[in-house]
Simulated scan of single mutants.
Amino acid sequence: MKPRLIKEGIFWMGSLDWDRRLFDALIPLPDGTTYNAYLVQGQDKTVLFDTVDIPLVSEILDQLQDVERIDYVVSHHAEPDHSGGVPAILEKYPDAKAICTEKCKAMLIDRFEIPEGRFQTVVDGETMDLGGRTLEFLHTPWVHWPETMVTYMKEDGILFSCDLFGSHIASTDLFVRDKARVYEAAKRYYAEIMMPFAKLIAKHLERLAPYDIRLIAPSHGSLYDEPAFILDAYREWVSGKPHNLVVIPYVSMHGSTRMMVECLTDELVQRGVGVMRFDLSEVDIGKLAMALVDAATVVIATPTVLTGPHPKALYAAALANLIRPKAKYASIIGSYGWGTKVVDQVAAALPNLKVEILPPVLGKGIPKMEEKKALSEMADQIAERHQEL
């Protein structure tokens, strides 16, 4: 695509990756993604904020063909989907400097072997005058790597936020127009990438609160010309209370565990507790992660495979442990044939979750009256605890 005018002297550049369906060999991209870069022209200096992923560098070079001078290329984050074009930009503009944090500089040298003399590092809160446009560089470590920062442009009220507030979605809408679609994509992005750092993000949101932010320009997805839309969403995802919701990731080989899941679901619904179930044999992990943003309780349901949990149940436990949802309670249900160590192994896979483990329910073969009663009691315990949220 050709550069797109945001306002006088400020242009969107980058790539729309319509067909990409997997990120980091892990994260599903049902709607593709975008790699956003931004060209800002001051009276004295011209800056490019971020670039694109390595396979698409030729696109941003085409967009820059009529730009005679770039003084700085800001690398907010060293990950190649943002910094993949930095070496090519520095080659095209031999007088340009790469601006980044000290940690980012080290990562870019490691990844791209950029000469050290091409860098200009900035400290937290440092400002730069482009001539009529003032940049303030704000370090935001662990959003979502340790070297990241964002940039605030004072006169225009623009926050160049890199991955913060991003959404994996390919769209020709320069600004957010389909709010429902963007909300879901942004929540998926938060769940999969940002949720492990929720406490740090809360502090960054607090720091950004006094700034007059009139436009948020992330490195993935559409721009927010109504910043409250995404700021309010992040405040809820990061700091809001868990919902009256139980998420049940499950896998069932011969139907017994599924019967237990159906029994628990019915008992919970009768008590006014919401339930979201995910069949791990064909789950979209993004959907599961999104549900975990809101869940107060997680119940992992698994059959026993050679005395241990099904590998896909362990995968779900590992995912929950990795992204660290704000759930308050967790438990395990499942079936076995002759012996099981499911509870110990699943619980051991959840060290990062600060949850109360409710008494598990395991049954030999299909659930009998004893297991059904225990599932009913589990539903009672969950409903009582959810009233305290």
Rank of each mutant, 00 (worst) to 15 (best):
P3K: 05
I6W: 04
F11W: 13
F11Y: 15
G14D: 07
S15W: 11
A25L: 08
P28Y: 03
A37E: 00
D44C: 02
T51Y: 00
I54M: 11
Q63K: 04
P87D: 08
L90G: 02
P94R: 11
G125K: 08
E126P: 00
L130W: 09
L130N: 08
T134G: 03
T140L: 13
T140R: 12
T148Q: 13
V150A: 14
T151Q: 06
T151R: 07
L159R: 06
L164N: 05
F165A: 10
H168S: 15
I169D: 05
S171H: 03
T172M: 14
D173E: 14
A180N: 11
R188P: 06
P196R: 00
A198P: 01
K199F: 02
K203S: 14
K203A: 12
A209D: 15
Y211C: 06
P218H: 03
P218Q: 07
H220R: 15
P227K: 08
P227N: 04
I230H: 12
D232Q: 09
D232F: 10
R235Q: 14
Y250H: 13
S252R: 07
S252I: 06
G255W: 04
S256T: 14
V261D: 00
C263I: 13
D284R: 02
D294L: 11
D294Y: 13
A296I: 12
P303V: 00
H310Q: 03
L314E: 06
A318T: 14
L322E: 13
R324Q: 14
V342W: 01
D344A: 12
L350G: 06
N352A: 09
L353D: 01
P360S: 10
P360K: 02
G363K: 06
G365A: 09
K372D: 11
K373F: 11
I382N: 00
A383Q: 01
